[in-house]
Amino acid sequence: MSTLEIRDLQVAVGDKQILNGVNLTVKSGETHAIMGPNGSGKSTLAYAIAGHPKYTITGGQVLLDGVDMLELSVDERARAGLFLAMQYPVEVPGVSVSNFLRSAVTAVHGEAPKLRQFAKDLKAGMDALHIDAAFAQRNLNEGFSGGEKKRHEILQLELLKPKIAILDETDSGLDVDALRVVSEGVNRFRETGETGVLLITHYTRILRYVKPDFVHVFAAGKVVEEGGPELADKLEAEGYEQYTRASA
């Protein structure tokens, strides 16, 4: 059992304050959706938890099973069991997908996987996500289409098996088939009941495949409302206007 506890998190970029006290707790077995207007700070929350150097923590805590993640380096957080599927995965020239994945799996699991086992897991993972085997030899994310990048994020999720996964708009830019394939990947990850998911999205369509237990509305750098899955439908019908007006 794991718990990610975000307590009164405040984050700035440069001298611009973006998160104004976020409180949120994600336990294993739970799926939380975060919805909110553009620019409200959803990606900032995700990146700040992962430890991106651009963001400055100005207050609060992020605890994974009681350990303050904000004290750890980016790679230590990942090894502690956090995973961020990025909204815009980075292209890394000259580093092949297979080389990268092997390094990541070795780092996170603390020992190099047996080559044959790794090749098998990789192939199974790629097949399940409908990723062509040739991608293993390509440079990481380089020239991948938007949808291909997202599927690779989920491939990494499945291979690294974190405790808590934050998915930042993994559904954006996916066609209907890819959306289903990616959702199945997330559901395989959830299946054990020992993992928690924080899913950032603008659309309810992914929530039909990946059913959330809780929905949080994010506006102006904080959570402004919480509810069950029905809240997502309400947001889709009515938009965010009432929240943005309230917080402005």
């Binding site: 992962a50 430890g51 991106h52 150097p53 651009k54 380096s73 980016v74 790679d75 957080r77 990942a78 090894r79 961020l84 990025m86 995965p89 980075v90 890394v92 580093v95 990268f100 390094s103 990541a104 780092a107 996170v108 990481l140 990494q156 690294l160």
Partner: peptide, 14 residues
């Protein structure tokens, strides 16, 4: 920095 961040975010030490 973005390249390094991406790799580190997957657990790979700096």
């Amino acid at each position: 920095d973005e390249h390094i961040f991406y790799l580190q975010a997957r657990g790979i030490p700096f």
